[in-house]
Deep mutational scan, measured.
Amino acid sequence: NLRWTSEAKTKLKNIPFFARSQAKARIEQLARQAEQDIVTPELVEQARLEFG
């Protein structure tokens, strides 16, 4: 299971509600691909840039 830093959680809250669950799934996918067990603000930002 993935842990989220408080900064990453804050960044996730800045994503519009309607896109948040999809973004969260993508962020967690990116973390797993990078073999990380902690979601960082950088991963959230990477996903945000993908979504535009």
Results as ranks from 00 to 15, higher is better:
Asn1Ser: 13
Asn1Trp: 10
Leu2Val: 07
Leu2Glu: 01
Leu2His: 02
Leu2Asp: 01
Leu2Pro: 06
Arg3Cys: 09
Arg3Gln: 10
Arg3Met: 10
Trp4Gln: 00
Trp4Leu: 00
Thr5Gln: 04
Thr5Asp: 04
Thr5Asn: 04
Thr5His: 04
Ser6Pro: 13
Ser6Arg: 14
Ser6Lys: 14
Ser6His: 13
Glu7Phe: 04
Glu7Ile: 06
Glu7Pro: 04
Glu7Gln: 09
Glu7Arg: 09
Lys9Val: 14
Lys9Gly: 03
Thr10Glu: 15
Thr10Asn: 13
Thr10Pro: 00
Thr10Val: 12
Thr10Met: 14
Lys11Val: 10
Lys11Gln: 11
Leu12His: 01
Leu12Met: 08
Leu12Phe: 15
Leu12Tyr: 07
Lys13Asn: 14
Asn14Trp: 08
Asn14Gln: 14
Asn14Val: 06
Asn14Tyr: 10
Ile15Gly: 02
Ile15Trp: 13
Ile15Phe: 15
Pro16Arg: 04
Pro16Lys: 04
Phe17Ser: 13
Phe17Ala: 14
Phe17Pro: 12
Phe18Gly: 07
Phe18Met: 09
Ala19Cys: 15
Ala19Ile: 15
Arg20Phe: 04
Arg20Ile: 04
Arg20His: 04
Arg20Ala: 03
Arg20Lys: 03
Arg20Glu: 02
Ser21Val: 11
Gln22Met: 13
Gln22Asn: 08
Gln22Trp: 15
Gln22Gly: 08
Gln22Ile: 12
Gln22Tyr: 12
Ala23Gln: 05
Ala23His: 07
Ala23Cys: 09
Lys24Asp: 01
Lys24Tyr: 07
Lys24Gln: 06
Ala25Arg: 12
Ala25Met: 11
Ala25Cys: 09
Arg26Asn: 04
Arg26Ser: 04
Arg26Phe: 13
Arg26Cys: 08
Ile27Asn: 00
Ile27Pro: 00
Ile27Phe: 01
Ile27Ser: 10
Glu28Arg: 03
Glu28Ile: 08
Glu28Ser: 03
Gln29Trp: 10
Gln29Cys: 07
Leu30Pro: 00
Leu30Ile: 07
Leu30His: 03
Ala31Asn: 01
Arg32Phe: 07
Arg32Trp: 05
Gln33His: 08
Gln33Gly: 06
Ala34Val: 07
Ala34Gly: 07
Ala34Gln: 13
Ala34Trp: 13
Ala34Glu: 07
Glu35Phe: 14
Glu35Cys: 12
Glu35Gly: 15
Gln36Met: 15
Gln36Leu: 14
Gln36Arg: 11
Gln36Lys: 11
Asp37Arg: 10
Asp37Thr: 14
Asp37His: 12
Asp37Gly: 08
Asp37Met: 12
Ile38Leu: 09
Ile38His: 07
Ile38Ser: 05
Val39Thr: 00
Val39Tyr: 00
Val39Lys: 00
Val39Asp: 01
Thr40Asp: 02
Thr40Val: 03
Thr40His: 03
Pro41Leu: 11
Pro41Lys: 09
Pro41Glu: 12
Glu42Asn: 09
Glu42Cys: 03
Glu42Pro: 03
Glu42Met: 06
Glu42Ile: 05
Leu43Ile: 09
Leu43Gln: 03
Leu43Trp: 04
Leu43Tyr: 05
Val44Asn: 01
Val44Arg: 00
Val44Trp: 03
Val44Lys: 00
Glu45Val: 06
Glu45His: 06
Glu45Ser: 05
Gln46Lys: 11
Gln46Pro: 01
Gln46Cys: 06
Ala47Glu: 05
Ala47Pro: 01
Ala47Cys: 07
Arg48Thr: 11
Arg48His: 08
Arg48Met: 15
Arg48Glu: 09
Leu49Pro: 04
Leu49Lys: 12
Glu50His: 08
Glu50Asn: 07
Phe51Cys: 08
Phe51Asp: 04
Gly52Pro: 10
Gly52Ser: 14
Gly52Trp: 14
Gly52Met: 15
